[in-house]
């Protein structure tokens, strides 16, 4: 691999083509069920679609990573192991797994299959990564969005496992894989069902103060007449704390690492990832194109790299809340 790999989301075949055509080095996708953390209606791949997507990507030199990053329970364990077997049979380039038990199954059953530890595996230190490396031979880890840039640098220096970090997309405020807020409210979480704040639990209504949105009865936000009404991801709702109303956890905003791309390259990150398998092919095309250009510019001249205005504007247009942050990478955010 030359330089840092650009890993882009494919929630559908058109999105996959958009990613590959616009310069993704790898795409990641999931099957059409609860085995992956973006289990949304109308999204993801059946066997035939996956086969077609893999063919399309491989013919154009792009890799395909398959996310099986939810936590199987005994009652449905075999659905997850079958998904591992199917992925191996389809010839994916790597599996992205979160559950240690499923990781063990995959390593034993398909010893030649490349394994990545999902962000949902919550590994934030070189020791946690070493556990998965020694037990299952993982080749890459996706870091949760909780470490400062300095801490990412240290993890990269302390492990020989490839490190992938999120570069752009919706910002998860909590440690991925250890957030049960969604199941507390709705009964379904990313870990159990591959869903956060699931659409079936969303209820809109008109109230005295504006448009009210609830998740399974819990009032997440109220939007005034001139406010854009966003999707009620529950950590980005407005709540009252000590008499003050506001975004107690986080504003609707997107992560963007454009400003520190040279630093990430210099510290030895192996791959950068775009979030958004639930987003449209147009979004995937736009973000992939910008990050491809940015990565190429950064590879060519890291010292002279500066984000171009048109890149920033293009990303801003598709960002949640039309604004962006470095998130935990920047100490002040924490």
């Amino acid at each position: 691999m030359n330089g840092v790999e650009l890993v882009c989301p494919a929630g559908s075949l058109p999105a996959l083509r958009a990613a590959v055509d616009n310069g993704a080095d790898a795409v990641y996708l999931g099957f059409r069920d609860g085995t992956n953390a973006r289990n949304f209606p109308g999204l993801n791949f059946d066997q035939r679609g996956a086969r077609e997507g893999i063919r399309y990507a491989h013919e154009r030199g792009a890799k395909v990573l398959l996310a099986l990053n939810t936590y199987p329970q005994p009652q449905t364990w075999s659905r997850w192991t079958r998904a591992v077997d199917q992925a191996a049979e389809l010839g994916v380039d790597a599996l992205i797994l979160a559950d240690a038990g499923l990781m063990r199954y995959a390593a034993r059953t398909h010893p030649g299959l490349r394994l990545h530890l999902s962000v949902q595996g919550s590994a934030t230190s070189a020791e946690a990564i070493a556990f998965y490396r020694e037990q299952f031979g993982i080749q890459r880890v996706v870091l949760p969005r909780v470490l400062s840039a300095q801490q990412v640098r240290r993890v990269v220096a302390q492990t020989d496992v490839e490190v992938e970090v999120f570069a752009f997309g919706s910002l998860c405020v909590m440690v991925e894989g250890r957030c049960y807020l969604s199941s507390y409210v709705t009964g379904e979480s990313p870990n159990t069902c591959g869903a956060c704040s699931p659409a079936r639990a969303v209820q809109w209504s008109e109230g005295a103060a504006g448009r009210e949105v609830r998740l399974n009865g819990v009032l997440i936000d109220v939007f005034g007449a001139h406010e854009p009404a966003g999707y009620p991801v529950l950590c980005k709702g407005r709540f009252r704390v000590e008499g003050r109303l506001g975004y107690a956890m986080e504003e609707p905003t997107s992560l963007s690492v454009l400003d520190i791309l040279p630093e990430l390259l210099e510290m030895g990150v192996s791959a950068i990832k775009v979030e958004g398998r639930q987003r449209s092919p147009a979004y995937v095309a736009q973000v992939t194109r910008v990050l491809r250009q940015a990565l190429d510019a950064c590879h060519a001249d890291p010292a002279g790299f500066a984000p171009r205005e048109e890149w920033v504007a293009a990303l801003q247009r598709v960002a949640e809340g039309h604004t962006h942050t470095l998130g935990a990478l920047e100490r002040q955010w924490q």
Partner: peptide, 21 residues
């Protein structure tokens, strides 16, 4: 009270308008 989530961000400090450090 159920432990539901962890974050890099300190929400108590955020509510109080203080930096985590």
């Amino acid at each position: 009270r159920l432990p539901l989530a962890f974050s890099a961000r300190c929400f108590t400090a955020r509510v109080r308008g203080l930096p985590k450090d």
